[in-house]
Design a protein around this nucleic acid. Structure first.
Lengths: 208, 208
DNA sequence: ATGGATACCAGACAAATGTCTGGTATGTCA
DNA sequence: TGACATACCAGACATTTGTCTGGTATCCAT
């Protein structure tokens, strides 16, 4: 019946669908139909197919709620959750991973198992903008390049430091003049991973 | 046939389903069945229903891919995307919001429209651990409390500062001795919002 | 005006998916 | 041992959902 200017409804349908996907469940064709007051399923379907042709949506034909966001859409890969660990003590990483304090949404393409998040204690990295209470997201790896910010075991607890590789030894540099450089033989270093992201929540992220 | 120790398979199914929801589309009962090698749909169904009873999953009966993550699950609300703006110039916030540089996954419960993200320029907030290139996530609001980290218009560009409310005037404090405090009459202040989160990507978040 | 494109509609069919009934085997515990 | 719960299976049915065919109305450019 009535007719909408070209592209207007289309755009709204796109935002609607995208929002639903991000929230965890794409809409069915009929849900789109109802949300926009179409009297025919086909109307919704045509818009949706058009959005797929434009590359704004992807879809798996024949499957219920088959729409998705294409990887190359600039909206980032689908989010996934990374376990947040309160603290990690000697040899306890695997155990800690099984009982996380919570989960953080990230957009990393890495397998979930390769990432974890850790709450920072102490001011030893303040000079690098990593403050107590901040959360670092870490990619698990046993080695790292000189200059990388890493999580390593120092004594019996995991700490964040800047890695410096020297000829015969390895140094863990704090970024704060009040703390001392830690020097270890390269056979003794125990690197848990490399920091790929730092986060700071200035208010409760759940309520805020 | 074979039988698995109590709860083991159940736990794996939970992780599987949760992961799929976060990625944007919950599995069907039959997808769970196949993923775990059940020879009957009902087996998968029983596990799923049990997870709902335990409160680990929510579901809408009768609907395709009807499972979801309960809000109170501790895994945070479903992720949603916040638009990332490269820079904001005078009066351009609304325009900028329509053409974001990308999107970031967050777990905020706030409506999507109330949040935006901004890339930080300059070292004026280094003392607060906010470095150039960092991303701040901002809740849109025209006022804020003294001491809050805010995004405000200074000249014709948005900048991040600490807000101090004095008797008759408002001060925007940098956190860096090299920068000067900005003093404005409280009628002239133009606050875009309050910083609720700071992020720093130490390697390319898409490849990393 | 006319052909084409867009936006929408009505009704149906078929596949995907949720749900159900009734069963077997294995473990736990009184 | 027997009652009970758990884990699983086989096969079917009903609903939801994707898909299709054929149509009307409006706008635009030629």
């Amino acid at each position: 019946m009535g007719r909408t200017p070209a592209g207007q409804t289309r755009r709204k349908i796109y935002t609607f669908v995208r929002d639903r996907i991000i929230r965890g469940r794409p809409p069915t064709v009929r849900e789109v139909q109802e949300a926009f007051g179409f009297r025919a399923v086909q109307s919704a379907r045509e818009h949706l197919e058009a959005l797929v042709s434009e590359g704004l949506l992807s879809k798996e034909p024949g499957r219920a709620r088959g729409f998705g966001l294409p990887d190359a859409s600039g909206y980032g890969p689908p989010a996934r959750l990374v376990p947040l660990l309160g603290r990690v003590q000697a040899g306890q990483l695997t155990t800690a991973l099984e009982e996380p304090d919570g989960y953080l949404a990230t957009q990393s393409r890495l397998p979930e198992q390769e990432l974890f998040a850790l709450r920072v204690r102490g001011r030893s990295m303040s000079g690098a903008g990593i403050l107590p209470g901040d959360i670092v997201i870490v990619r698990r790896q046993a080695t790292a390049a000189s200059g990388d910010t890493v999580v390593a075991m120092v004594g019996d607890e995991a700490t964040v430091k800047t890695l410096k590789i020297k000829k015969k030894r390895i140094e863990l540099h704090p970024q704060n003049p009040d703390f001392a450089v830690i020097v270890v033989a390269d056979s003794e270093i125990n690197i848990l991973g490399k920091v790929v992201e730092v986060r700071r929540y200035l208010e409760d992220p759940k309520t805020g």
